[in-house]
């Protein structure tokens, strides 16, 4: 079986698995990293959202063979380490402050999307708009959407 090496939450990992296995399953089933959730497997629910080289992506739709040793993947488990200080990432703190989670299943993906969105908007040198928030595709079947909007604004102010 082919070997694949990439960076995961700040560490180099190597796995023995077929090229076409999607990264979501490499993370969850092979490496036991279960923060990214399965909600559709076809890149529409966004429950699996993680970061690749600092940008949001959906590992259910990327074969492990498509990435290489230089690619840095960050899952919710590694998010806090990307921010200064010992605590959580400011977006995670905002989530706690607004008590966003209900069942919590969608929330790792929501937070990873939110952080990438704020970074993107910031790179464009502008503030978050209602349209930016409307463009978030992550499903929350518990319906926490309004608190998500509030938390993103709080988190953005502190990032």
């Amino acid at each position: 079986m082919p070997k694949h090496t990439f960076q995961l939450n700040g560490e180099t990992v190597t796995v023995d698995v077929e090229d076409d296995v999607r990264i979501l399953w490499v993370l969850r089933d092979v490496l036991g990293v279960t923060g990214p959730k399965y909600g559709c497997g076809i890149n529409v629910c966004k429950a699996c959202t993680s970061h690749i080289n600092g940008k949001a992506f959906n590992p259910c739709a990327v074969p492990v063979g498509a990435i290489g040793p230089g690619d840095e993947i960050t899952t919710i488990e590694g998010l806090a380490d990307t921010a200064p200080g010992d605590g959580l990432h400011p977006m995670q703190d905002a989530w706690l402050e607004h008590d966003v989670a209900q069942c919590g299943y969608c929330q790792p993906g929501q937070i990873m999307t939110a952080v990438a969105l704020v970074n993107r908007v910031r790179a464009e040198n502008r503030a978050i708009t209602e349209d930016d928030l409307d463009s978030i595709r992550n499903v929350c079947r518990c319906g926490t959407y309004s608190r998500i909007r509030e938390a993103i604004r709080t988190g953005a102010a502190r990032m």
Partner: peptide, 22 residues
């Protein structure tokens, strides 16, 4: 009162059935 499981939820530590491992 904020949820007792909120920290686990936002850090990815909250375990659902499919997160049970080896």
């Amino acid at each position: 009162q904020r949820r007792v499981d909120a920290l686990d939820a936002v850090t990815g530590r909250k375990k659902f059935a499919m997160d049970l491992t080896e």
